[in-house]
């Protein structure tokens, strides 16, 4: 027993050393972000909370009619989240600032899918139903989806919603970045087009970043010096400018590295060309072969059966 265990570890360590020398270090993880991605800047100092973006989104995406009219601004009294019938919502925050007439100044925050540069949902999706498109949209292909909802687990912004009440063909529902309109019809996303004050600026992501930096520079005191989404979660296509610190407006603080990096690095360094399972298989075969004599020595062994 003692000898066999020593043998066992000897074989293990030899095999391990062999694989370690044979393998070059795993390739560094690389971002798959498209270079020509479109994006949007949401300027919270401009947003007036009119909910027109919600209305346009509803119409463009042919979503079910809302419970309460889009002109009813009392829905802002309660914090909402995007759900399976609403791809975007506007919430109102009071950060405590008051104007010269002692009125609290509201800040309105539009929420929707951030269309990450390296989306966690797309990395997680078991069948690749979610994918980052060249134009920046994170697109959902319902024909591949099996409904595992791992995308929802993975999303750091908690955006994808699910049609939980459809028993057979539920879909993952989230902002599409009006993919069809932008890619095929050359139009703008519904919300960006309708916004009366251009709180949403649509354009190439790199251009937008320049625009955003210029806005911060040219309006001293108007903005906090932070473009939310420039680096968050490795960068997102939708980005925000604000007068208040983002933590006060319900924005989640996220690391700067892309969410999928760690899991994908582990995954690819272990399983590229299935090298580790093959090596393990070989090692186990070797062990089994080495120990086969012991097996024969013991009686009543049913011919290789279990």
């Amino acid at each position: 027993m003692g000898i066999s265990r020593r043998n066992f570890f000897k074989i293990l360590s030899v095999a391990g050393a062999a694989t370690a020398t044979a393998r070059t270090p795993a390739r560094a993880w690389e971002s798959q972000a498209p270079s020509e991605a479109y994006g949007c800047i949401v300027d919270l100092t401009r947003c007036i909370g009119c909910r027109k973006c919600e209305q346009a989104c509803n119409e463009v995406n042919k979503l079910p009619p809302p419970d309460r009219s889009f002109e009813d601004l009392t829905v802002l009294d309660r914090k909402r989240r995007p759900d399976e019938k609403t791809f975007t919502v506007v919430n109102r925050y009071y950060s405590g600032r008051i104007d010269e007439r002692d009125q609290l100044i509201p800040t309105f925050v539009k929420l929707q899918c951030m269309h990450c540069q390296d989306p966690a949902c797309a990395s997680a999706c078991i069948v690749g139903a979610l994918s980052k498109q060249e134009n920046g949209a994170v697109n959902y292909d319902v024909s591949k989806c099996i409904g595992c909802r791992y995308c929802m687990v993975a999303c750091p912004f908690e955006i994808p919603a699910y049609e939980y009440h459809d028993p057979i063909t539920p879909r993952v529902m989230k902002c599409t970045f009006c993919y069809e309109r932008v890619a095929n019809e050359g139009k703008l996303p519904g919300c960006a087009e309708i916004c009366p004050v251009e709180a949403i600026t649509f354009g190439r992501r790199d251009t937008l970043l320049k625009v955003a930096r210029d806005r911060i520079k040219e309006n001293p005191g108007r903005y906090v010096d932070h473009i939310y989404g420039e680096h968050e979660a490795g960068g997102t296509s939708w980005m925000y400018l604000s007068a208040q610190p983002f933590e006060k407006l319900g924005f989640v603080t996220l690391p700067d590295h892309p969410m999928p990096r760690l899991a994908e690095t582990i995954q690819h360094s272990l399983y590229s060309y299935l090298w580790s399972p093959i090596v393990l298989f070989g090692m186990l075969s070797g062990i089994m072969w080495a120990f086969r004599g012991k097996g024969e020595r013991q009686e009543d062994h049913e011919g290789g059966n279990l």
Partner: peptide, 17 residues
Amino acid sequence: GRSWAIWKPMIYWNFNS
């Protein structure tokens, strides 16, 4: 959600997942 689609990972592969 789509129990009938459980075979789809056999056809649509996402090696990142």
